[in-house]
Design a protein around this nucleic acid. Structure first.
Lengths: 341, 341
DNA sequence: TTGAAAGCGCTAACAT
DNA sequence: ATGTTAGCGCTTTCAA
C-alpha cells in the first residue's frame, strides 16, 4: 500500500516488482492457464502490496469480451424495478457477468441515448424493459449481435427474446374477477403516462372485458407527479363526489390504491361491500395496511431471474433461444377489498 | 440500417464507406477539431446509414479518459438512494459524465468487491455512501487518483470530500424536540442492522440527548426483513402491550412509523396527546397518511446534486477541494404527530 | 483542413 | 510452466 499516485499502476509494474513476465502476471491475476504455486504467490503478493487494480478497459479491448450486462429500465422510483434488479443481480452473481443499470424515465429519446451509450461499451447482453422502442433503438439492438431480452411485457413482437406477463390479460383477469363479484359501477384511476405501455395495455384489457359484460367505465381520472398515496386519496374523494354511485374503484397501481383505501376507511365506508377496490403490483411494501388491497402480482423477481438466466446461458454456450417468449402468469390476490362471490 | 452482423462495425468501416480517413471520421464523430461541413455531413451520413456505434473501450484506452462516475450505495430498495441518484443524474446530465451504480447491500466485503470492479474501469470519480469502509477499500480509493465524494454522513473523517448531514445531530435534534414537547416515556424501534452506521449514529445522538435530560429509553425493539409497514404495526402493538405507559415512539424510518401510526389510529388512541410519534427521512411517498408523521428530512436530493457538482467541477478544472466537508442541515417537520409545546 | 504513425494496457496465439 | 509477439479500435501527436 503506497501513497496516492498520479499514474495508475500497470501490469508492468507488478511484473517488475515480482520479477515475472507480464504475461504470467496476467495469467495469475485471471486464474488462467498453468502457473506454479510459487510464482502465483509471488505475483499475488506483489499485486497486493502495490495496490494494483487491473485495467478492464485494456483487458476488454484485447480480449474482445466485456462481462457487463446492460439493464435498461424506465425508473428506479417505481418499486417494481428495484425488485426486477434484485432478481437479475441474484442470478448474475453466480456468473462472471455484472449488471449495469440505465434509466430512461419512460422517454423513448432517453432510451435511445442510454442504449447507445451502453452499447458503446460492448456489453455481453441487454435486458431492457418493454417491447416498444424507437426504430433507431430496435436497429441498434438488432445490430449489436448480443443477446437481447425484453422484459415485463409479452404483448408484442420481441426483437430477440421476451420475459414477462401479458398486461392485457392481467387487465382482463381483474375485470373478470370484478364482474363475477357483482360490481357494476366501476371507476378507474391511473397515471397520466401515454408512454407507459404496460399500464395502457392493462387498461385496454380491463375495459374490453367490461364491455363484453355490458359494462362501461363509469368514471376515470389520471394524475401525474406528486405523492401517489396522497393522489390516490384526493382522486378517490373527487371521484366519489362526482360519481357517488360507484361500487368499485380500480387503481393502476397499489400506491394510489392504498391512498383510496385509507380515505374510504376514514369515511367509514364499508369495504368491500359498499365499494370494492383493487390495485396492481402486489407491492409487499404495503402489507400492513388496515385491509389488504386486492392486487395482481407482476412476477417482478421471477422476470429478473429468468432474463438474467437467459443472458447468462447464451453467454456460456451460445445456445440460441432467439424468438423465445416466456409468458409468466400473474396471480390475483383478492385481499380484503374485493368481495367474495 | 443493415441486418444483424457478427462483427461490430469499426471506425474503419465508416472510413471506407465515406471515403474519408479514420482520423477525420473520428474527429467528426467527436465534434473535435476542424472538419469541413461537406466532409462532416458525408461522415455523419455514412455512420448513420451503417448504424455505427463507437467503441468506447478503444476510445477510453487511447484517450485515457472515461466519462463514468462510480456511484456506490447500500441498497436500491430504501427509497432514499433512488432519490440521491436523481440528484446525481440531474446534475451530471449537464456534463459529459455518466453515473454507474453499484450496490453493496450494507456489506463491507461487497463494497470492496464492487469498488474494485468499478475502479478497474477507471472512472472519472467516485461517489460512495458513508464514511466507514474497509482498510482495503480506503486504500483503493486513495490510490485511484480521482475525486472521491463520500455522501450521506458527515460524522467522521472523509477520505477526500464529504457531503451529507450529521446523523448524530439529527438524533439530538429530534430528542430535543420530543423532550421540549414534554414527552417522558419514550420507546424506540429500528432496523437490526449493525452495519447501518447512520442509523446507529442517529440512535446514539438521540439517547445522549435524552440522557442529558434525565431520560432513558423506556423500551426498544429491532426488526429485520419483511414489510416495513407491517413490522411497524406489529412492533408498535407488541411494545405497547409490553410497556403500556409509553407516551412517545421514535421510529428509525418513516415506513415503520407509518405502520405504527395506522395501528394507533385504529386503536382510537389520541395522537399526539396520548402518544406522540416520529420517524426519519421525510419520505414524500407517505404524504397522504391520515396524519402527517413527524420526521426529519435527510437532504437526499441536495446531497446527490452537491456530490455530483463536486465531481464534475474537479473533472473540469482540476480544482482541488480535497478535505472539504459539506454539512447540510436537516429540517425537522413536526407533522401532526408531535404535540406543540 | 486532412492524414500517417505510434501507442494506450492488456490478452490470444504461439513459441519455448 | 513461462515468455514473446502482435494486435484489439481508437486517439494523440505530428506532418503535410
Amino acid at each position: 500500500m503506497q501513497t496516492r499516485s498520479k499514474r495508475p499502476l500497470t501490469l508492468r509494474d507488478v511484473s517488475e516488482a515480482s520479477g515475472v513476465s507480464e504475461m504470467t502476471v496476467s495469467r495469475v491475476l485471471r486464474n488462467k492457464g498453468d502457473v506454479s504455486a510459487v510464482t502465483r504467490e509471488k505475483v499475488r503478493e506483489a499485486a497486493r502490496r502495490l495496490g494494483y487494480v487491473p485495467n478492464k478497459i485494456a483487458g476488454a479491448l484485447a480480449s474482445q469480451r466485456v462481462n457487463l450486462v446492460a439493464v435498461i429500465i424506465p425508473s428506479l422510483g417505481n418499486m417494481v424495478f428495484p425488485e426486477v434488479l434484485s432478481g437479475i443481480s441474484e442470478v448474475l452473481e453466480d456468473t462472471d457477468l455484472q449488471p449495469v443499470v440505465g434509466v430512461t424515465d419512460y422517454q423513448p429519446e432517453k432510451e435511445e441515448k442510454v442504449l447507445f451509450e451502453m452499447l458503446s461499451w460492448r456489453p455481453s447482453g441487454v435486458i431492457i424493459a418493454g417491447l416498444e422502442h424507437s426504430e433507431a433503438s430496435r436497429a441498434m439492438l438488432l445490430q449489436a449481435g448480443i443477446p437481447v431480452v425484453e422484459i415485463m411485457d409479452t404483448d408484442g413482437e420481441p426483437i430477440d427474446t421476451a420475459v414477462g406477463i401479458s398486461h392485457r390479460r392481467a387487465g382482463r383477469m381483474m375485470a373478470e374477477a370484478i364482474v363475477e363479484a357483482g360490481y357494476k359501477r366501476i371507476g378507474f384511476m391511473g397515471t397520466k403516462m401515454p408512454l407507459d405501455h404496460r399500464a395502457r395495455k392493462r387498461f385496454e384489457g380491463f375495459t374490453q372485458t367490461l364491455a363484453k359484460n355490458g359494462i362501461e367505465i363509469a368514471d376515470q381520472e389520471f394524475y401525474s407527479g406528486g405523492s401517489a398515496l396522497a393522489k390516490g386519496r384526493e382522486m378517490t374523494e373527487a371521484m366519489l363526489k362526482r360519481t357517488p354511485d360507484l361500487d368499485f374503484l380500480y387503481f393502476s397501481n397499489d400506491m394510489i390504491g392504498a391512498g383510496g383505501l385509507l380515505y374510504l376507511q376514514e369515511q367509514g365506508i364499508d369495504i368491500p361491500n359498499k365499494i370494492g377496490l383493487a390495485g396492481f403490483n402486489g407491492v409487499e411494501l404495503l402489507e400492513g395496511l388496515p385491509k389488504r388491497l386486492a392486487s395482481m402480482d407482476a412476477c417482478r423477481l421471477e422476470i429478473g431471474q429468468t432474463a438474467a438466466r437467459i443472458v447468462a446461458a447464451r453467454n456460456a454456450d451460445g445456445a440460441s433461444d432467439e424468438g423465445q417468449v416466456v409468458d409468466l402468469s400473474p396471480t390475483l390476490s383478492r385481499g380484503d377489498t374485493l368481495r367474495k362471490i
